[in-house]
């Protein structure tokens, strides 16, 4: 059985608290443990902020986040109708550099990969759709 919830907000970083609250409810409903929940919230913030900053050059547009419990996993999709962009193609940052040489930024895509069990991107119906999966059992 599958129960799907979704939330649509303006592509504005100020809307992050609404997305966070929505996902917290989904995570609690799915019985996600605190560690996995932390990782999911982090991954979604990184994806959300990236869409807010880059998807819509005129900064006008919507972002939809959906949550679906599929078997033992929580599947979260974040989609926008902005310019095609796959954050997963960004290279990992060099995390060994000293403070003086460290670039500010570049960690978003890295965190999305590291804090979820699986993640994929697809372009469908002129939408960017990032699909994040966290296993509720492990």
């Amino acid at each position: 059985m599958s129960e799907k919830f979704n939330k649509i907000v303006a592509a504005n970083v100020e809307k992050l608290p609404e997305i966070t609250e929505f996902l917290q409810e989904c995570a609690d409903y799915s019985g996600l443990d605190p560690k996995k929940k932390f990782g999911l919230l982090l991954a979604i913030e990184e994806a959300f902020v990236n869409v807010c900053n880059y998807a819509y050059p005129d900064h006008k547009g919507l972002i939809e986040v959906s949550c679906d419990k599929v078997d033992d996993s929580l599947v979260v999709e974040i989609s926008d109708k902005g310019i095609p962009f796959n954050i997963l193609l960004l290279p990992d940052p060099d995390i060994s550099l000293d403070i003086a040489d460290r670039e500010i930024g570049g960690l978003g895509g890295y965190f999305i990969r590291r804090f979820t069990d699986s993640v994929s991107y697809r372009r469908e119906d002129e939408k960017n759709i990032l699909r994040l999966v966290v296993n509720c059992l492990s």
Partner: peptide, 13 residues
């Protein structure tokens, strides 16, 4: 209780 890359970014700056 929570930090994202935006938090790390301001720590570094």
């Amino acid at each position: 209780d929570y930090i994202s890359s935006a938090g790390l970014r301001v720590l570094l700056a």
